[in-house]
Amino acid sequence: MPASRRLPAAGALLVLIGAAIAAVPALVSDFVLLQIVIKSLWLGIAGMSLAFLIGQAGLISLAQTAVFGASGYLMAILVLDHGLTIWAAVAAAVAAGPVAGLVIGAISRRSSDLYLMMLTLAIGVFTFFFAQQYQPITRGHTGFNGFDAPLLFGADLSERKPLFYVSAVAAVAVVALFRLVMRTPAGLAFRGLRDNRDRLQALGYSTSATTISAFAVSGFAAGVGGVISVWYNGAISPGSIDITRIIELLIVVTIGGTIRIEGAFLGALVVTLLRNYANEYTNRTETLVGAAFMAIVLLSRHGLLGILLNVKSLALKALRFFRGQRMASEKEAVA
C-alpha cells in the first residue's frame, strides 16, 4: 500500500486513540484510574520492552528490571542528590534506558536461549544487590522516597488525571516508535535473529551487533516505564527491581503474549486487576496470579492476546462463511 493512502488511515487511528484516551477519566472512578489504569500503563510500557525483545528478536531477557531501575534510580539520584532540574533529569533517565540496554546487550551478545536467560538473570539480580548495598549512591535498601512528579505545562503530574494523560501519551509514543523500528532494516534483522541466528550470520549480519541493537531499542521502553513508575510511586527502592519484579514482567508478557508488542498492556492490566481485586475474594492473590499465568500458558502459546486474535479470526471466518452462504442463496434466487 502506498504511504499516501496509509497516512489518512493512521491519522484516523490516532484521532480514535486520542478520543479514547480523553474519555477514560470520565468513564472510570478515580480509584480505578490510579490503581488500575495508570499502573497498567507504566507496567505495560516496561513489559513492552520485554515483549519486543522476545517477540521480535527472540531474546528472553530477565534483565529488563535492571534497565527500568537504571532509569528510575538515575532520575531520583540526579534530582534528589544532585539538585538537577527535573526535566533535565527525566531526559537523562530516558536516555539511560537504551544505554543500559546497550550495556546488557553487549554483555550477553554471544548468548541465546537458556544461557541468555541465566546471564540476564544474573545481571538483574546483580543490579538489585547493587541498589541494595551500594549505599553512597543508591541509599541502600530504603532507596529514594518523596520524589515529586514534575509539572508539565502547569499540570501537576502527581495528580492522577495529568499523570494518566502523560502515561497514555507515552504508551502510544513508545508503541509507535517500536512499530516504526520494526519496519526498518534493523527491525527485519531482529526477526531474522529470532527465527534463525546462524542463517542471519550467513547473510552477513553480526549476531552480536544485532543482539546489542535489539537490547538498546528495547531499553527505551523499560527506561520510560521506570521514569513514570517513580512519578507514580514517588519512590524507587531495591524492592522495585527485585526478583519478584523480574518474574512479574515475565508474567505480564506471557499473559499478554508476544506476537504483538501491545499485548504487554493487556498482560499488565490482568496482573494489576488480579492484584487489586482478587484479595476481596481470597487472601491468596499471588496464587491466583500464578494460576492465571499457568492457565494462559496452557491455553495459548501466544497469551491472552493470541486467544483474542484467534477468536477474532474465527469470528471473521464465520462471518465470511455466512455472508458467502447468503450471497450464494441470493444468486440462486436471482437465477
Binding site: A186, A189, G192, D195, L203, Y205, A209, S213, V217
Partner: peptide, 22 residues
Amino acid sequence: GLTVGEHLMLAHRGPEKGRLSL
C-alpha cells in the same frame, strides 16, 4: 516467520553498511 520478500530484503542488505539501520 519472514515472508519470501523479507528473506530477499534481509539477504540483500546483509553485505551493506546499513544492514542494521534504524
